[in-house]
Design a protein around this nucleic acid. Structure first.
Lengths: 141, 141
DNA sequence: GTAAAATCTGCAACTTTGTTGCATATTATT
DNA sequence: AATAATATGCAACAAAGTTGCAGATTTTAC
């Protein structure tokens, strides 16, 4: 199920940040790599097939990946939190996320970045920026 | 508690969109006007004083205001949804929202707008854009 | 102003999403 | 292989949001 190339990559990423290489972390990283877009706990669970990770495990795994910066949280008009691989994102900005108002699907608009905002007010220090877009995806337009 | 000037404004807004002028809608609109930033159901409840609106009422009120466009949902790194008055927002973009990583407070960065994103891909129609910023507020910087 | 129609409101019960504590299992280190 | 360190799963819980329905308000029509 999990292709061994992805597994290798996942192991390397985990070693680099000094996290235990557990089957949960490896599989979840592989799932996120394959997906290429933000996924919720529930979506990860469904994609993990026979393994059936407990939801607590999935949340705790994501949190550990979040803490070391391998993963980001994406905020959107969904109730559940969505997580995605942090590669391709700079420290300050990630690609925008797009929600289709018709079908509800989420897309990452890779290769697109907006200028970093400069606050019009004195004293605000802006460290990160996240952009969310809404509209119609090609299938629904 | 609710200043009668705000009440008047709220009534006008509701009439304009043909919603019943109920005390719940009037008070909640007034609370949002006073706040000037996105609030959660729980924050609205605390600010409504003696009235003690049921949380169901607050959610349903916000939903009705949302449907007619008087109110927006702001997505942030908070678990609960936050709502704010939609005035000052164009159809396509609202001012950015700022979360302080130290104190957790939310600020609206009024008077600031970013260029609307243009999708790098054929077929995506972008209708709305929302920007979220993270950093340090003046009190914490 | 009053009655009827339309729409809100509150309550109770429920669903979904995420968290905590603890005992057991797995991974890394020596 | 033994030990220390960390992850996992389960059960129980907490927080956020929703649904159905009866009773209360607001509008509309007269």
């Amino acid at each position: 199920m999990i292709d061994s190339n992805l597994e290798m990559k996942a192991r390397k990423m985990l070693k680099a940040v000094k996290l235990y290489c557990t089957s949960g972390r490896i599989d979840i990283l592989a799932i996120l790599m394959k997906a290429g877009k933000p996924l919720s706990q529930e979506q990860i669970a469904r994609r993990s097939g026979e393994k059936h990770f407990d939801k607590v495990t999935i949340y705790r795994t994501l949190e550990s990946l979040l803490k070391v910066g391998l993963v980001h949280k994406a905020f959107m008009d969904k109730r559940a939190w969505h997580f995605e691989l942090a590669h391709n994102c700079t420290e300050h900005q990630c690609h925008p996320h797009f929600t289709c108002t018709n079908c509800g699907n989420i897309h990452c608009l890779m290769g697109m970045s907006l200028p970093m905002a400069k606050s019009p007010y004195k004293g605000f220090v802006i460290n990160r920026q996240q952009v969310w877009l809404e509209g119609l995806c090609p299938a629904c337009a």
